[in-house]
Amino acid sequence: MNIRIVLAVSVLAASLSGCKFVKTNAGEDGASADPMAELVETSFDAKLVPALNEKAVELATLRDALKSGLDKAGEAHGVRVGGAGGGWNFPVKGTATVVEENRASKAATADIDLDGDNKGDATLQLGPVIKGTALRDTTTLYDFSTFRDQIEYAKLGRALNDKAVSKLPAADTPLKGKKVAFLGAVVIRSASEKPQIMPVSIEVVP
């Protein structure tokens, strides 16, 4: 056998031995199902939303807790990913008035006022472009060790964000000036930063 072929086969075998494969299932038409899409579909409404709802802290309460320090607030209400020095992830909910709305950008946002001073105290991400992976990281539902690698884990974060965006008010539903109730997750790395929340629901309330 040609030595180049031998080397190529050896390299391929070595690379495959260190891989962890994600199982795929065949659909009714014989095509392979997307395991990531299946995971999001089966867990988002059934597990993630209830988990956030159960643990969510009122955003106003979290703001007050942050005045005593991020770590103290995190220990009381959050989950830390990445060990010491990493940000704290918080499940949050609340009712606030939308004072600004930016739909021109693909990373659309709405600024919300919690205390009635007509100033934005936090930001709701509306998408479709979303920053961060707070929905993935705020609960213990998605264990990194069960994924093939960091790339697959990152895909999960994006898939969860996409699913959440699909459930938010569409661009032709103006929110500015309206009172809304929201539920979602946020990662905070500094007690002084303006929270940028990824909501799983936004509802206009009377």
Rank of each mutant, 00 (worst) to 15 (best):
S166V: 10
K67T: 14
G94L: 04
L135D: 05
M198P: 10
T24M: 02
E28Q: 01
G78W: 08
P199Q: 03
V180K: 05
N25G: 03
V98M: 13
P195I: 04
S192N: 15
A33W: 05
R4S: 08
V9H: 11
V40H: 05
A104T: 03
D117W: 05
I3T: 03
S17L: 12
L168K: 06
T139R: 01
P169R: 04
E193D: 13
T24V: 08
V200S: 08
K178H: 15
C19D: 14
A37C: 01
M1H: 03
S190A: 13
Q196G: 14
V79C: 06
N89M: 12
I188G: 00
A108L: 07
P206T: 02
I5G: 09
N2L: 14
S32L: 10
T61H: 00
D64F: 02
F144Y: 05
G30A: 06
N2Y: 01
P128K: 15
F44I: 11
I130M: 12
A171V: 11
A108G: 01
T42D: 04
P174M: 09
K23N: 09
D45A: 15
G83P: 11
F147D: 11
I188A: 01
S32R: 02
F144A: 10
E152T: 08
S32N: 06
A191W: 00
F90K: 02
E203N: 03
V11S: 03
E203I: 03
V11D: 06
V205A: 06
F44N: 13
V165I: 13
A33H: 04
L7I: 12
S43N: 15
S68D: 05
V81N: 04
A191G: 15
P195G: 14
L156G: 12
S43I: 04
T61Q: 09
I151E: 07
K55V: 06
G85P: 00
G120R: 03
E193R: 09
N161P: 15
I202W: 05
F90I: 02
G116N: 06
G30S: 02
V99S: 07
L48Q: 10
R4V: 04
S190Q: 14
H77S: 08
